[in-house]
């Protein structure tokens, strides 16, 4: 299964949900905003959001500064 994460294609051997992807690709998942195929997915529903082949995921981890 291929999923594009922040513009880079990644291969997954088994089914995966958004929470697992965020844990894998973000150092700290506490302040992450996530989009799947153009729609923002709130953190409360990450575990239920199963990803499919061809999905596009954008992840931004907020950091301090302003």
């Amino acid at each position: 299964m291929k999923i594009t994460i922040n513009g880079q294609e990644k291969e997954f051997t088994s089914s995966v949900n958004l929470k697992k992807v965020i844990e894998q690709f973000c150092k700290d998942s506490q302040h992450v905003i996530a989009e799947v195929n153009g729609t923002i997915i709130k953190s409360q529903v990450w575990p239920e959001k199963n990803l499919s082949n061809g999905d596009t995921v954008e992840l931004v981890n907020f950091v301090g500064g302003g």
């Binding site: 905003i33 996530a34 153009g38 923002i40 954008e58 931004v60 950091v63 301090g64 500064g65 302003g66």
Partner: peptide, 20 residues
């Protein structure tokens, strides 16, 4: 970067609370 209806400007990694 654009996430949904949110435009986000920056380097997305440098944290001012980490000594920067």
């Amino acid at each position: 970067r654009k996430v949904g209806n949110v435009y986000i400007v920056g380097d997305h990694s440098t944290d001012s609370t980490q000594g920067h």
